[in-house]
């Protein structure tokens, strides 16, 4: 559940979600659940020429299983905290 908690901490931050169908959506992380389903707000499609119909979308729900990558804001990655969390997790939390 480490990644779930980690993503929960990123709520409110700007992320880019890249789907397995190559669609990349940038937006504010609204919420995430245990299946890593992701809700984004203020979304915009990175490659607008390729996906013009997504232009109108301002918030969306993305199924966790179709996510290929989540690009994180550098300031949202606290390496020390993550190290600590993985250590704790490794000891059976």
């Amino acid at each position: 559940m480490l990644f779930f908690s980690y993503f929960k901490d990123l709520v409110g931050k700007e992320v880019t979600v890249e789907l397995k169908n190559d669609l990349a959506i940038r937006g504010t992380l609204h919420s995430v659940d245990q299946y890593l389903n992701i809700k984004l707000e203020n979304t915009r499609v990175v490659d607008q020429d390729k996906y013009p119909h997504m232009l109108s979308v301002r918030n969306c729900f993305i199924r966790g299983s179709v996510v290929r990558y989540v690009q994180l804001p550098p300031e949202g990655v606290d390496v020390d905290l993550l190290h600590d969390a993985t250590r704790r997790e490794a000891r059976g939390g």
Partner: peptide, 8 residues
Amino acid sequence: SLHAVSRD
């Protein structure tokens, strides 16, 4: 895989 509200 994705659903959204489209208003534009």
